[in-house]
């Protein structure tokens, strides 16, 4: 076990104390409209926004947007268009053919169109990744301006796993050609609730 020798080497090598700077978040605020900025940035990373004023609109909208989806998991209360008995799922393998996952976000981030989701928002961590398409439900008033505000909010979360999701999975590894839909979902739609 090299723990102690490594720590010893660091103690002998490290420079004298360099002070930790204060982060003055107000310096980075640009006072643009949070919802508009969120939408613009989400669309720029390949995501899509659907405006809703009530959760009752979600199921019919999903039926219209994803007519071919057969295996659907809903992790959002009050949205009952799920087709899979979630209580029986114990492994990622059983989710292999998942067409659509519907999850709720704790909050969104205007500067990059990201949403924050955690263990609380799904019953298996593979759900937001293995589904071919992902729908995220987000309340419009829960959009923060930037990652400073977002990270400050993370102190409220003690779950074992959480992730910022900004648009669908993507790759540009073949000659810089952007392909939406890499190893994760092929599409990401945010239902923005007013």
């Amino acid at each position: 076990m090299s723990r102690d020798p490594i720590i010893e080497k660091i103690r002998n090598a490290k420079p004298p104390d360099s002070s930790l700077p204060e982060i003055d978040v107000s310096r980075f605020s640009d006072e643009s409209g949070k919802a508009e900025t969120f939408i613009r940035n989400l669309e720029s990373v390949g995501g899509r926004v659907v405006h809703i004023s009530s959760r009752r609109e979600i199921s019919p909208q999903i039926a219209a947007l994803f007519p071919d989806a057969k295996e659907i998991v809903s992790c959002v209360e009050g949205v009952d268009c799920g087709t899979i008995d979630t209580g029986k799922i114990s492994s990622a393998k059983e989710l292999e053919k998942l067409d659509l996952a519907i999850i709720e976000a704790h909050f969104g981030v205007a500067e990059n169109g990201a949403v924050w989701v955690t263990d609380k928002n799904f019953f298996h961590r593979s759900i937001p990744f293995i589904a071919a398409h992902v729908v995220v439900v987000l309340q419009q008033e829960k959009i923060v301006e930037n990652m400073h505000e977002a990270c400050a909010r993370l102190n409220e979360f003690h779950e074992g796993y959480g992730v910022f999701i900004s648009g669908p999975s993507k790759t540009a590894d073949i000659e810089q050609s952007l392909v939406i839909g890499a190893q994760g979902p092929l599409s990401l739609t945010v239902f923005l609730e007013y």
């Binding site: 982060i23 940035n41 720029s44 990373v45 981030v109 500067e111 990059n112 169109g113 990201a114 930037n146 990652m147 400073h148 977002a150 990270c151 400050a152 993370l154 779950e159 074992g160 796993y161 959480g162 992730v163 910022f164 999701i165 900004s166 648009g167 669908p168 999975s169 993507k170 540009a172 994760g184």
Partner: peptide, 24 residues
Amino acid sequence: GVFLRLLARSATGQPITAYTSFYR
């Protein structure tokens, strides 16, 4: 927060990577 604002913008010009995963 500071680093997540800088990383992807510096790397590829994206505002953030598609996934920023916290394994705790």
